[in-house]
Design a protein around this nucleic acid. Structure first.
Lengths: 379, 379
DNA sequence: CTGAAAGCGCTTACAG
DNA sequence: CTGAAAGCGCTTACAG
């Protein structure tokens, strides 16, 4: 930890010259207190000191007290390397995140980190952007035996990857993804889209377009399946035929959605509403609509999914998903698994429509059987 | 790592029953290959095996080759705990992040993680939201001796905190913050705001309002000082007197900015342009303007700072700052410091105005000495 | 309840 | 160039 490599004595990490004296002194004098110091000071053996600090049994209350007191006074903290080596446990959990720079992932990590750290774990961040990164991660991490568990954030993993982790005894959990093969917590994608679709249907829309998102390099695309399914089901339930021309697919992203929207605007008969698979995509669609000289929601209603923090600022109607909560639940799920409990391995958190001002009743070119929403929030 | 705690044999982490046989087998048979296995297989001692794999000197080329080959074949990976214990180094770097869920922080972490991991370090994530979290971090982390260095993302730290880290020999670097007391990479806040202000001035605006951001619980507020200063300087240079009524301060956030904008709209003579300290805040201001029945940019021009990914989708004019780059540069700075080199300890990355459509020439109630910008990007 | 001792899996002077 | 041995700082059976 204390690092004075250079023999010439001029390189004490990044510390300015004026501090050098101070540093040398600190190095020589303090040298992190260890268990031995605590034991000596408390007048017990190493073994007893260790037990007093860790295990619940086998130490006289008075002894435990005394040791604890000394440890506190000396600001003793066990060397994690040493105790990990000795116990064979790491108390470290890896987070595998494809796009840490996107709100969704950051929020998820936020929730995960909070719970995992509270439980005494270290949280290692692995950003795996592209397929190679994923590959490298799954090939090396388990072998490194650095972690007790890994939580993958919205990344479907292959069977091979999963098996590799399992074989090494690494517990795996998915946050925000969903996959029957390992425990997860997510939203019900189909239900979310169904809610969005039903909101539009309730407003009297019939020509509803949807901008569907897929991952460019994912092996599976559950979200697409799930979300798209919700749309078709809701339309069918309402007895509305889906015009396949109004179903466009693109990769995640606002710009991509903006381009997809151009396609939708070049259809013979324009849609009166469009449902995007994320708020970001909804904003992209809105830009195209706006640039085409059309208005939202007067000419075309737009609804997204997420309730991104900025959605509120641009008055975007959307389906809210609790992202941070998904992270927290996933963390709890993982901890339960690590404890050897048997928690619910398939948790879905509810979503709900948040009505703002990018959706409006369809104009009277279609019959409008349902009443328009009233501006309040609904389930 | 392999974890079969229960004596009844029914709790192999989170693995389903059908896998139990497989697991037990794996556990019994494989048991992670260690240096000893490599050494034996290669017919050398532990010491030689270790040297062959790590140090550059002191091993015959042929020996090194053979050991490396065996290691590869056995898929050997050193136990990080053991080697850290033995070397006293952690190869671990902590990232202290106040709001991982915001784009700016996620992007920064993205850049940091990439470079630090490439260099062979583990990246530990610490989300410290509130002052207590910060306190806990700085009090415990150094004592834990878990990390070689910490990079604080846009969090000014107190002198006491800094000293604590330094005394433990932990190298510290700031990414996105700026502070004369430790090495950093950031943008020039004053320059960024100056660019924004000059853009508005160039469009002929004179009644320029600014929504200034401060951190609620920060000890220092360099950004505020810096950014605010840029505004006053640019105005002074242009010979325009700042109307103090048009300078409002609030905490970071779109909703807060929306409220601040209400204040600006209740001034006797409305501003013709407003400069917000972030894009999110700009969007908040725009919402208030829109809801007041005014148009952007026809009635009021709006410019932000950041070039948030969504800024492009809402056509927001802004000052772009390279966030990921700041993270990458900060990582390189840190690595250089750890290597004992003497890098530039005060790196500022350039920003530039990105003109989109929320700013327009001031209407002719004021003289317009400069030509309006032409829609292209400018420095 | 407590202690002496072995061991976790590496690295690294110290001798050849 | 190579090996035997000590040591990194804990934890945990194994004996009292």
């Amino acid at each position: 930890m204390i690092r004075f490599v250079s023999s010439s004595g001029d390189s004490c990490s990044c510390v300015g010259k004026r501090f050098r004296g101070l540093y040398t002194e600190a190095m020589n004098s303090s040298k992190a207190v260890g268990l031995a110091d605590v034991a000596r000071e408390a007048g017990v053996s190493l073994a007893t000191a260790s037990r007093a600090l860790n295990s619940a049994y086998g130490v006289a209350a008075a002894t435990r007290e005394r040791v604890a007191e000394v440890a506190r006074r000396l600001e003793y903290v066990a060397s994690p390397e040493a105790s990990r080596l000795a116990t064979g446990t790491t108390r470290t959990i890896a987070l595998v995140v494809p796009h840490i720079d996107r709100w969704y992932f950051g929020e998820m990590v936020n929730g995960l980190e909070e719970i995992l750290r509270e439980a005494g774990n270290d949280v290692l961040l692995y950003h795996v952007g592209d397929p190679e990164g994923r590959h490298a991660f799954f090939e090396h991490l388990p072998a490194r035996r650095k972690v007790d568990a890994v939580v993958v954030v919205a990344v479907p993993i292959t069977d091979h990857e999963r098996r590799r982790l399992e074989l090494m005894g690494v517990t795996i959990v998915a946050a925000g993804g969903q996959d029957a093969t390992y425990p997860y917590v997510s939203i019900d994608d189909a239900a979310a889209v169904r809610q969005a679709t039903e909101h539009l249907l309730r407003l009297g829309h019939r020509r509803i377009a949807t901008i569907t998102a897929v991952d460019p390099d994912r092996v599976e695309q559950p979200a697409r399946r799930g979300r798209t399914r919700g749309f078709y089901e809701a339309m069918a339930d309402a007895g509305v035929t889906v015009d396949e021309e109004l179903v466009v697919t693109t990769t995640w992203g606002g710009v991509q959605a903006a381009e997809a929207m151009e396609k939708l605007l070049s259809v013979r008969e324009l849609p009166t509403a469009v449902l995007a698979h994320s708020d970001e995509m909804a904003l992209g669609a809105m830009r195209t609509i706006r640039r085409a000289g059309l208005r939202v929601p007067e000419d075309i209603s737009v609804i997204g999914i997420d309730d991104h923090p900025l959605a509120e600022l641009v008055d975007l109607t959307t389906v809210r998903q609790p992202v941070r909560d998904q992270g927290m639940h996933a963390a709890h799920l993982l901890l339960a698994l690590l404890r050897g409990e048997d928690p619910d391995r398939a948790q879905k958190l509810p979503t709900r429509v948040v009505v703002r001002s990018t959706t409006a009743p369809a104009r009277n070119d279609q019959p409008s059987p349902a009443r328009p929403a009233t501006g309040a929030t609904q389930h």
